[in-house]
Structure formats: C-alpha cells, structure tokens
C-alpha cells in the first residue's frame, strides 16, 4: 500500500498539477491560433507577467495587513486576471494589430511574438532582477498530510493547499469556458471564426470584438496558469519561458484550434512527463519478494533520467507533428 500512496503522490498529484498548468496555458495558445492563425510564442510572457502582477498585488495585500483564509495569491487572482487581460489587449493593439492590418503573413506575427517575448522578458528582469520570489514569505504554505495507515500505508498522502485550490480553480475555469463556448453568443461566434473566418465576417460577426475576447480569455487564463505555477513552485522571470514548449506540445497534441484538445493535451503531457521520470522500482518493489535473485529490480528503473524530464514533452511534440500533425482531436490543419 505504501507503494501505491507513493505513486499517487509522485505521479497522480504531480501529473495533475502539471497538467492543469499546461492545459490552462495551452487553451490560450490554441484559441489565439484558431482565431488569428499564428503561433503566439509570447504566451509565456502573458503567464509570467500575469504571475508578477498577482505577486505585486499579494505583496500589497500583505503590506496593508490584509490576512486571508486561503493563500493571498488565490484571493488576488481575479484582479490580476483582469489586469493581465488588459495587458494582453494592449500587446495586441501595440504589436500585432498593426501587422495584421498590413496583411502580414502568420510567420511575421510569429516573429513579432518572439520580439514581444524578449521585450517583456527584459522588462521583468529589469524590474525584478533574475532572482526568484515566493508567494509564501508572509504566510505559511499549508501542507495536508492524510494518514493512510488505515489502508496499510506507512506513508501519508501529501498535497499542498495551493495544489488543491489549483485543481479546483482549473476545473471551474474549464467548465466556465465550456459553457461560454457552447452557450453564449460570443463564445459561439469565437468558434465560428475559428472554423471559417471569412464566413464569420460575412455573417456580420464583429470579428474585431471576437479578437478582443480571445485576447482577454488568453491573458486571463495565462495569468491564472502563471500565478498557480508560481504558487506551486517559485516565481522567477523565466517561469513560463522554460515551459512554453511543453505548452505548445500540449496545444499541438490536442490539435491547434481545439479548446478541448488543449485540455486533454495538457493532461497528457503533464502525466507523460511525470510517468517517464517515475522510478518504477518504488512501485514494484514488493515484486522483489517473489522474483528470483537474478531478476531483482535495480534501484532505479525509470524510462528516462530526471534531467531529461522536459525532453519528454519535446519528443511527444516532434512525434505528434510527424505522425499526426492535426493532433488527436484533429485541429486546424490548413
């Protein structure tokens, strides 16, 4: 039983947490691709920037002496998301909209997004240095340990408070997004524009409005993902820059342009990463008792060494691109 609890801690919980963050990031990328048809690299900076906004707000709360029952990072999240959405709109207006107006090719927009990445990255480092920050300087990070002796485990089930909240918040956001896309007028218009932008225009859909809504959602969800990642680990200027490729992998595996695909892709990449570096000996150790001597399990039995964890996502990405570029949910291929 101990082994099973260990597996839950190491794979199920971590995979879920990672999957949530990847999924939230990938939704933004996939929506932007669906509507504007370009790979938005600067999405990482929407995430990191959003996390820093949340961090500043949380620090302000602490300075004003406001104490909250749940981690302040989650309390300020709604405000931070609004600000991040405004930031996303500003970035589009300042950098991408002029290029679109000129009729620039998607590749040009992609390169422009690299420029935006560098600028925001530079600005963040300029103001915050290259060090890392913690949301939990003024309050404790609560860790729940569930004693599992009842089912014969010597290890407790461990999950932190931010992790619990993160999974809940992701679930709620995904449901909200689902209802938005399938029930609301604007959400349906967004799907229509992703499906066939010319026809959407012909139908009288206000495409400029749809573009704005897309940036708002992408910015807000990006901020959510970035903040929650920072709450789970630490906040640093290259927080999301380092994981933008796994997030792209999630979006592509799920099929670019497909919101539900992005969620599935995020979970898939998250679990693949944790499973690939998991030391199977820890789970299968009881087998040693029945295996003959020459077949005893080695002390570490992982598919890839831990230092190659991020590489797993790249390999999945490359294989998906080669075997099924439209992704498992058959996204926009043209």
């Amino acid at each position: 039983m101990t082994e099973l609890i260990f597996f839950t801690n190491q794979v199920i919980i971590s995979g879920l947490v990672l999957g949530c963050i990847y999924a939230l990031g990938a939704i933004g990328i996939t929506l932007i691709f669906g509507i504007l048809r370009f790979a938005h690299f600067a999405h990482s900076e929407l995430m990191t920037g959003g996390a820093f906004i949340a961090f500043l707000l949380a620090s302000a709360f602490a300075a004003w002496g406001i104490v909250t029952p749940i981690p302040t990072g989650f309390v300020v999240l709604p405000i931070a998301m609004v600000l991040a959405a405004i930031m996303a709109l500003g970035i589009d207006k300042g950098f991408y909209a002029p290029l679109r107006k000129r009729g620039a090719k998607p590749v040009t927009l992609l390169i422009a997004s690299i420029g935006v990445t560098l600028m925001i990255q530079g600005l963040i480092r300029l103001f915050f240095g290259a060090g890392s920050y913690s949301f939990f300087e003024h309050e404790p990070k609560e860790v729940f340990r569930f004693d599992m002796a009842g089912i014969g485990s010597t290890r407790p089930l461990v999950i932190t408070e931010p992790q619990v909240l993160m999974i809940l918040v992701t679930l709620v956001s995904v449901l909200a997004l689902h209802f938005f896309l399938t029930r609301s007028r604007l959400g349906k218009a967004m799907r229509a524009m992703a499906d066939n932008a010319d026809l959407a225009q012909v139908s009288g859909i206000n495409t400029a409005l749809v573009v704005r809504v897309t940036w708002i959602i992408a910015g807000a969800l990006g901020c959510m993902a970035g903040t929650m990642l920072a709450l789970d680990v630490t906040l640093k200027p290259d927080l999301a820059f380092n994981i933008i490729l796994p997030i792209f992998a999630a979006a592509i595996v799920g099929g670019l342009g497909q919101a539900y695909g992005a969620i599935a892709g995020g979970m898939l990449i998250g679990f693949a990463e944790t499973l690939a570096v998991f030391n199977w000996t820890m789970l299968l150790r009881p087998l040693n008792a029945i295996l003959p001597d020459w077949m005893q399990l080695p002390p570490t039995l992982a598919l890839v060494p831990t230092e190659y964890k991020l590489t797993v996502a790249f390999v999945i990405l490359v294989v998906t691109l080669l075997v099924r570029p439209t992704g498992i949910f058959k996204g926009a291929s043209s």
Partner: peptide
C-alpha cells in the same frame, strides 16, 4: 463555397 461552419 465554404458557406457553412462545418464544425458547428
């Protein structure tokens, strides 16, 4: 041509 939203 392409006058319906195929995925909807």
């Amino acid at each position: 041509e392409k006058n319906v939203f195929t995925s909807m």
